[in-house]
């Protein structure tokens, strides 16, 4: 066996459906990944503290009934709040993609308001609502990188990845919230055209304010995004790969996972007692 591995928990529950490709992305990059049903966290059969990275994949948890991600968000907020507080407090990483982003936002983990004692308050302060088009859409979008996050460090200025959602319009309650996000460098990705510039629909596919496609918490260790980096993990996922002369080793989305695993390896391994893998 090689030395200690970065341990990733990919969380799933009823309606999670982008879990396999998320597991594939992390494990292809050398992480030890466990796909865990939330009931196993509730029962304490699996402990969040045993992992370095928590990933919440896309899907339609609980059917997105009432609103996307709300029921899972409440489960995290109400039944796992202590574990999550500790996880965040220890400087570990969280990634939420699509429905996972919606969950993080509705649980108040992103953008992450904290109490004076520095603990997460689990208050929802921004939102993701129905696309202006009023429908679910699967399409590829260009993203322009901004912010300051361990997840996006060293990435190219632009990234090409697909979205697939009906509720991805990023909304803030007021100007102040938006300027806070900007000030804290919390905006990770913005939708843009092929030249990296602002554009209307479908460049901004859902009507998000300030073209926001993904945000981080103030530390940059928690990233949530509507587009799916795991769906551009292989260069063969690119919609026009047949037009290219040669293909790169990995797709553009892979770098996000690479960053996460690398950071965890360099910064978190050794700091945590890694429990012996069960069964």
């Amino acid at each position: 066996m090689a030395g200690p591995q970065v341990k990733v928990i990919v969380l799933r529950t009823a309606g999670t459906n982008c879990d396999r490709e998320m597991v594939f992305a992390f494990s292809s990059l050398g992480a030890a990944v466990e796909l865990v049903h939330i009931n196993r966290l509730f029962s304490r059969e699996v402990r969040l503290s045993d992992f370095h990275i928590l990933a919440i994949p896309g899907g339609f948890t609980y059917g997105d009934d009432i609103m996307s991600g709300r029921i899972l968000a409440n489960e995290l907020r109400i039944r796992l709040s202590e574990e999550i507080k500790d996880f965040v407090h220890e400087g570990k990483l969280i990634l939420g993609v699509c429905n996972g982003f919606q969950v993080l936002v509705r649980a108040g983990i992103l953008p992450g308001s904290k109490s004076s004692s520095g603990n997460l308050t689990f208050q929802q302060t921004v939102s993701l609502s129905n696309n202006d088009s009023g429908k679910f859409e699967d399409r590829w979008v260009h993203l322009r990188l901004s912010g300051d996050s361990v997840w996006t460090k060293g990435l190219d200025e632009m990234m090409y990845v697909p979205i697939a959602h009906a509720e991805g319009k990023f909304v803030v309650p007021n100007e102040e919230t938006l300027s806070q996000l900007k000030k804290n460098n919390q905006i990770a990705f913005r939708y843009c055209n092929t030249d990296g510039e602002k554009g209307g629909y479908p460049v901004n596919p859902n009507g998000s304010i300030d073209d926001i496609a993904g945000i981080t918490d103030p530390t940059g260790r928690i990233l949530g995004m509507m587009p799916h980096p795991e769906r551009h993990f292989s260069p063969l996922n690119h919609p026009a790969w047949t037009r290219k002369d040669h293909l790169s080793h990995l797709g553009q989305g892979a770098n996000i996972f690479l960053n996460g695993v690398r950071y965890a390896r360099e910064q978190l391994l050794g700091k945590t007692q890694v429990a012996v893998a069960k069964g």
Binding site: R20, E21, F24, F136, D138, P162, R231, F233, N237
Partner: peptide
């Protein structure tokens, strides 16, 4: 476009 034609990666 209303169908997710890329899930499962």
């Amino acid at each position: 476009r209303q169908y997710d034609h890329e899930v499962q990666g």
